[in-house]
Design a protein around this nucleic acid. Structure first.
Lengths: 215, 215
DNA sequence: GCAGAACTGAAACAAACGCTTGATTTCTTG
DNA sequence: CAAGAAATCAAGCGTTTGTTTCAGTTCTGC
């Protein structure tokens, strides 16, 4: 059939495109968002420099495509983990669900953890054009806040948002900093047994003392 | 006196050197560690490109010098804040002292916060040659652990180290991420009233439940 | 005053950067 | 089979990068 051969051709045509995306993600994790070189990407992917302009338009567009796809799969994984939560879930269950994708990547390591490192950088870099993903992004926050408001009725909404962002930021930091690599060498249960209490404690907060001034 | 004029000359000679260091710190905060350009530094500082090679040897050496000086002043400030702590200080007092330099920078904003952003990046970037500062760095951790072990006798030492690094990482994240900029717009008391409970809760931890698996 | 160190200036260096061009090959379609 | 779309290729574009060179200036020490 002509259509079948057409599909094969199309796949062959898109093969270098996807290969470029894959190696871009690898190099982004290794070199950081600024250290991405057009030549290095194409040579690693076994493609020509013109392939980037042809398939994506520019190196920056290729980078954004790669980051966006990684970010979306992470948000999907986090939403899946948060979905089973209900209004009477505990804070620890919330923390465990919220951290599940990161903990899984830490336990597995390798390419998966490397990709998540790029995702975590998104939280630092100047707010890019991830506008398409803001619904999913805000959905994770909404899911988390539902449990938080039920369990911590005395805390203001803004403060709960702050704590949620702190929890997310701490997870991002763990993937980026050397401590994450050290943590990845531990068994999976150990990772969870160390990380979940910290996250739960951060979300729960601690009574603010009357005087914190030292000395 | 000849020596006096010699000093003046030496100061005049070192003036461009210090000016280069200052503008390097500003540009590092604005452009990030990779976005530092030799031309931009020298033109902003009003110096010649050769001045960098002459005074520091290379652009990378200039950058390392600038980062190291900023890192050292931060560690000194943190050590000053941790010094008054005793064995019977509370976890909240520890958290407040540990976060004091960062909170101060967030409250003041401006150049001070920008410099701290460069300091926070050190925790992400590949372990550089800050070997000279490792004593001070480990001293902050030791000071924190003294209070932690006294207040949380049931928790293993390694886990307390992990929590300390989590607290430090969370502070770094707050300076780097957009949430830090938002937090900086709040009054100083609000910053402390929001941040200290989160840090205290993270350090204190939360009882790990028997089953955290969701669904 | 004079030799020499300390420092600054403008110009040029090779290398790497992202991107474009035009020819060539591969495959689909009528 | 021929026309044209899709894709890849080598080569070169102009710019920017960090660094070097060397002449010139400014000050110190004897």
């Amino acid at each position: 059939m002509a259509s079948e051969r057409s599909d094969l051709r199309r796949e062959a045509g898109q093969r270098t495109r996807e290969c470029l995306l894959r190696t871009t993600l690898q190099l982004l994790a290794a070199r950081g968002p600024e250290g991405l070189s057009l030549r290095e990407v194409t040579e690693t992917a076994g493609a020509n420099v013109a392939a980037v302009s042809y398939h994506f338009g520019s190196l920056k567009a290729l980078r954004d495509s790669a980051v966006e796809s990684a970010l979306e799969s992470y948000l999907d994984a986090q939403l899946d983990a948060l979905a089973p939560l209900s209004a009477d879930s505990t804070l620890a269950e919330l923390a465990a669900a919220f951290a599940r994708p990161m903990m899984q990547a830490l336990a597995v390591g390798g390419a998966e953890l490397a990709i998540l490192r790029t995702v975590a950088r998104v939280g630092i870099d100047p707010p890019g054009n991830w506008g398409r993903l803001t619904p999913k992004f805000e959905q994770t926050r909404t899911d988390a806040l539902r449990v938080l408001t039920a369990r911590l009725p005395g805390v203001a909404h803004e403060e709960l948002v702050f704590r949620t962002r702190c929890a997310a930021g701490l997870l991002n930091w763990l993937v980026l900093a050397p401590i994450g690599a050290e943590l990845a060498t531990q068994p999976a249960e150990r990772i969870e047994q160390w990380l979940v209490p910290v996250l739960t404690g951060a979300l729960e907060g601690h009574a603010y003392p009357d005087t914190t001034t030292i000395g």
